[in-house]
Amino acid sequence: MSTVCCIDLCRFFVQGEQTVRALDHVNLEIDKREFVCLSGPSGSGKTTLLNAIGGLDKPTSGEVWVAGQRIDGLDKADLANMRLHHIGFVFQAYNLIPVLTARENVEFVMQVQGVTASERRDRSMALLKEVGLEDMEERRPAQLSGGQQQRVAVARAIVSNPAMVLADEPTANLDSVSAEHLMGLFVNLNEKHQTTFIISTHDQRVMSYARRLIGMVDGRIVTDEIR
């Protein structure tokens, strides 16, 4: 069974008198443990595709299946629940809740899932250690660098063992050292936890880590190569 499956997926936006075809009949299947990069110029539909897969956005037509469940028709509450249990997110910026410490940010999702306090603590500490932030668990986001903030976001994304992690331009605001570090972390986690990663980017350094590289232009998949 594939982790993600998109069938004839379309997403049109009406902008003034024009209709923008952000996704134009996309068909895509991504299996477990894959490490996929979506590449393409800005406006090619990468983010829209990620949002559709993550249940953040409703497609105009077509089907989206995640972990064997069709999600394009779910209501808000069910979508929220699906994201909570099956998907981890890492965004470009503003990823963390500013009033919570690094550890509390990581624990946050588990909290909502109803995981016990001691288990939450153990898992969050272990993950923060894994992402290299073991001494910074009591810092608030404002006291962390951009790279460190993204690593906290990664820890939060995988803490509840989601089937996949969706990352939208995760390195866009990072210097090259931090970006390399973050990608290394992704690869590591992909191998160790067998989590599917789907990363949208137009950064060459990021693409070099990809084991499957999907190229998009004008809302269509134009290349799809396994490396």
């Binding site: 953040l56 509450a77 929220a80 629940n81 994201r83 249990h85 997110f89 965004f91 946050f108």
Partner: peptide
């Protein structure tokens, strides 16, 4: 962001 993480709006 928090909603994307899966928190329901009601919450």
């Amino acid at each position: 962001v928090v909603m994307a993480l899966g928190l329901s709006p009601a919450r």
